[in-house]
Design a protein around this nucleic acid. Sequence first.
DNA 1: TATTAAATAATAATAAGTATTGTTTAGAGC
DNA 2: GCTCTAAACAATACTTATTATTATTTAATA
Lengths: 143, 143
Amino acid sequence: MFGEMTLETTGKADMKYTNQRVEIITFLREHKGHPTVDEIYDGVRKKLTRISKATVYKNLKFLSEKGLIEEVNVKGVTRFEANFVPHHHLICRECGKIEDFESDELFDYLMKVAGDIEGFNIDSVNTNFYGECKDCKEKNRNG
Amino acid sequence: MFGEMTLETTGKADMKYTNQRVEIITFLREHKGHPTVDEIYDGVRKKLTRISKATVYKNLKFLSEKGLIEEVNVKGVTRFEANFVPHHHLICRECGKIEDFESDELFDYLMKVAGDIEGFNIDSVNTNFYGECKDCKEKNRNG
DNA sequence: TATTAAATAATAATAAGTATTGTTTAGAGC
DNA sequence: GCTCTAAACAATACTTATTATTATTTAATA
């Protein structure tokens, strides 16, 4: 389901590869975090100074629908990522930080569970682990 | 972690039980779906006609922080629930519908995985299964 | 039942996201 | 390479979602 993805292979998709779109995808691939719309906008503007924020919004929505990027919501903030290696999230309840967590074993287990669920055609799965990150733990100890 | 929860037992918490707050919690417990802020507002207004929307927002945020309710974001829409039996979500990519999915076995497996993760103190876990629901499948076949 | 911090309604303000419109451009066919 | 056209664009207006402010009310405790 999640094959390797390059601008070349995605080029097969039924869409135009404008500079703006390419820069947004590139930015997301080079920034392995989970940037917000504003962070993406600021980042892309360094290369395309005249890009409009509406274009960023439209492309993020479009690319999500196409399945080229993923949307993650934490603490009411919408973030995006372009990591298509199957993975899960470690989310800190306190600071909202998201770390990726890869595990083939977990992924396989979940897809097996998914296969047994009736009335829903599952094609992907994601587990969010919630808790306290190292930094916040440290901070609370010293506070 | 997720004990049974009643207004009585939650009364131990460090907070005031105003009519507005109680009605919001009650509404969420009686409506097993995953209502939006507006749906909660409309529902609660039937009993408390003069309640302010800001109060609904403030309480939803407050109760989330207290851990009495949970926030779920799908397709950019924020929804809430008060189901504290450990469970997972089946999310339809097309219509955005969310169904709850309970499985002790999956929950136990995930918490075992969580216990092995370093650098993060995990206290809860939730898996989202994404795909196409029965209704949308039907619709697409007949469309 | 008096006190007080917390919660409230009302409303103003801000932030997030979408729609519109006239202009530009990527990609397909020649 | 040149032309054509649907798709994408910038700019901006607009709508919706969310938060902040402030004066008033209320739950919980003494």
